[in-house]
Amino acid sequence: NKFNKELQWATWEIFNLPNLNEEQVKAFIDSLRDDPSQSANLLAEAKKLNDAQA
Rank of each mutant, 00 (worst) to 15 (best):
W12D: 15
A44H: 11
N41T: 10
N1M: 01
K26P: 00
F15T: 15
Q38P: 01
D51F: 10
K5M: 03
F15Q: 15
E22S: 11
Q8F: 12
E45W: 05
A10T: 08
E6Q: 06
N4V: 07
N41L: 13
Q53L: 11
L42D: 01
L49I: 10
N16Y: 04
P36F: 07
A52T: 09
E13Q: 09
Q8E: 15
A46P: 00
Q24W: 02
T11E: 15
Q38K: 14
L20G: 00
D34R: 12
E23T: 11
K26G: 10
N41I: 10
K48G: 05
K5W: 05
A46E: 00
E45A: 11
D34K: 09
A54V: 11
L42N: 01
V25A: 08
A44V: 09
K2L: 07
P18F: 08
F15D: 09
V25Y: 03
L17P: 00
S39Q: 07
D30F: 06
D34Y: 10
L42P: 01
E22K: 12
K47R: 12
V25Q: 06
N1P: 15
W9S: 10
W12N: 15
P18R: 05
S31M: 14
A27K: 11
N4S: 08
L32T: 02
A46S: 02
Q24I: 03
A27R: 12
Q24L: 03
P18W: 05
T11I: 15
N4A: 08
L7K: 02
P18Q: 10
A44K: 11
L17K: 00
L17F: 04
W9N: 14
A46L: 02
W9R: 08
Q24A: 02
E13Y: 14
A10P: 03
D30T: 10
A46G: 01
N41R: 11
N1G: 12
L17V: 01
E23H: 13
D34M: 12
P18D: 06
A10V: 14
T11Y: 14
N1W: 00
D34E: 12
K26W: 13
Q53R: 05
S31L: 12
L32N: 00
Q8G: 05
S31K: 07
P36V: 05
A44S: 12
N19A: 08
I14W: 01
L20F: 01
D51K: 12
K5Y: 05
K48H: 07
F28L: 03
D34H: 09
V25S: 04
W9F: 10
S31W: 13
Q38H: 08
N41F: 11
E13D: 03
K48M: 11
L49W: 04
P36M: 08
I29N: 02
P36A: 04
A27I: 12
P36D: 03
A46R: 00
D35Q: 08
N19M: 06
P18L: 08
D30K: 06
A52H: 11
D35F: 07
A54W: 06
N21H: 08
K5N: 13
I29Q: 04
A44F: 09
L49N: 02
T11K: 07
A44P: 02
E45T: 09
N1D: 15
N16R: 05
I14V: 05
T11M: 15
K26A: 11
L20Y: 00
L43D: 00
N19Y: 12
S37P: 03
Q24H: 02
E45G: 05
E22W: 13
W9P: 02
Q38D: 08
E45I: 10
K48R: 12
L49P: 00
S31E: 11
A52P: 03
F3A: 15
L7F: 08
L17I: 01
W9L: 13
T11H: 04
I14Q: 02
S39H: 12
I29Y: 03
L7I: 11
E23F: 11
F15H: 15
P36K: 02
A54H: 06
Q53N: 08
D51S: 11
Q24F: 02
R33M: 15
Q38R: 10
A27L: 08
D34S: 13
N50V: 01
L20T: 00
W12Y: 11
Q8K: 05
E13S: 03
E45R: 05
L43R: 03
L49R: 04
N41Y: 08
E45P: 00
D35R: 12
F3Y: 11
P36I: 11
N4Y: 14
N21W: 07
S31N: 11
E13H: 05
A46T: 01
E6W: 10
N41G: 09
A54L: 09
R33Y: 15
A40F: 08
A40N: 09
A40K: 13
R33N: 14
F15A: 15
F28W: 02
L49T: 06
N21F: 07
N1H: 03
N21M: 09
A52N: 08
I14F: 03
K2G: 15
E45H: 09
L49M: 10
L20N: 00
E6T: 05
L17G: 00
I14H: 01
K26E: 10
D34N: 09
R33T: 14
I14K: 01
K48W: 09
T11A: 09
N1Y: 00
Q38W: 04
E45Y: 07
A10M: 05
Q53S: 05
A40M: 13
E13A: 07
S39V: 14
Q38G: 07
Q53A: 07
A46D: 00
K2D: 15
A52D: 08
E22Q: 10
V25E: 02
A40G: 06
N16H: 13
N16I: 07
N19H: 11
